[in-house]
């Protein structure tokens, strides 16, 4: 969000302003910064060596790898979907457009637990597709495909909702011009549209990655919690917590926090680019 200031109105500085700023910063420190910092405090509570031993434990390493793998599969698919959805909705007019936009946002307001339940009812051995999957020896839930599918559900709107408003705001004039000049669809997209939306696209991808990496509730329904197999990093945090290994849980949590912080830094940088590109 840009920080461009308005011409100064009286009342924007002085005592009232200082109180409001103080209140805002104070609350943010207590409410948001402290939980963030506390994870590292607890993770290192017993020193570097214990921390390193926890992080390098094979089950933790596997959880990190699995979570990364899920993100590697989910994010590109959602980027492709986000672009397709934005292109269809922003550059064309068709009946039911508003409904489609609402539909895209559904996963945002549905509890991930419910997403997990939906997938279990569909792909579980006793679910609607269960017998067919069983007959063809395809394992969906309690395996990687189930985790990936639920993560896709939960993160589906992230790229679309960043790219769509921008594409809408930019209109279709440039693309129309390209069409008149004889460009084909792929050329229009890569040469005209993509440069305009690339920062928003990256920004959406970063948010999508953060969410995919951190998904807990939905994945916990379809994971089966097999150590070293289907245990993603957020689930591993809970597992270690239930192993009565609090330091280990915080150590695993700290790697997730680090990913979140990196995502935020990248996002902040991208935001500058995005605004500059306007």
């Amino acid at each position: 969000m840009s920080t461009a200031t308005l011409p100064h109105l009286p009342g924007q500085s002085g005592k009232g302003a200082r109180i409001l700023i103080g209140l805002a910063v104070g609350l943010t420190l207590v409410f948001i910064a402290a939980p963030l910092a506390f994870i590292f405090v607890r993770a290192f509570a017993q020193g570097w060596q214990v921390y390193a031993a926890n992080i390098l434990h094979p089950a933790t390493v596997h959880a990190i790898w699995l979570t990364t793998l899920v993100a590697i599969i989910v994010v590109p698919v959602n980027v492709a979907f986000g672009i397709a959805a934005a292109w269809a909705v922003a550059k064309h007019r068709f009946p039911g457009r508003g409904i489609l936009v609402t539909l895209i946002e559904i996963p945002f307001s549905i509890s991930p637990i419910i997403a997990g339940i939906c997938y279990l009812l569909l792909y579980g051995r006793q679910g609607i597709l269960g017998p067919w999957l069983q007959a063809n020896d395809i394992q969906v839930v309690f395996a990687l495909p189930g985790i990936v599918l639920v993560t896709m559900f939960v993160t589906a709107p992230f790229v679309a909702r960043e790219v769509l408003p921008l594409m809408q705001a930019q209109g279709t004039e440039q693309e129309q011009a390209a069409v008149t000049l004889g460009a084909n669809g792929w050329q229009i997209f890569t040469r005209v549209t993509l440069p305009n939306i690339k920062w928003a696209l990256l920004y959406g991808a970063v948010l999508c990655t953060a969410r995919a990496v951190g998904e807990f509730g939905g994945v916990s329904v379809v994971s089966g919690n097999i150590r070293g197999q289907t245990n993603t990093l957020p689930l591993h945090v809970e597992l270690l917590f239930n192993d009565l290994n609090a330091v280990g849980a915080f150590a695993a949590a700290s790697t997730l926090t680090l990913i979140a912080v990196v995502a935020l830094v990248v996002k902040t940088i991208l935001e500058g680019r995005k605004d500059a590109g306007h």
Binding site: L120, R125, Q126, Q139, F142, G224, Q229
Partner: peptide, 22 residues
Amino acid sequence: VTIDQSHGGTSRQARAILEGLP
């Protein structure tokens, strides 16, 4: 040999196996 472990209430585990936990 590698041995993977899953832990939970046993009825929950039985359900998970019925649902396809291998």
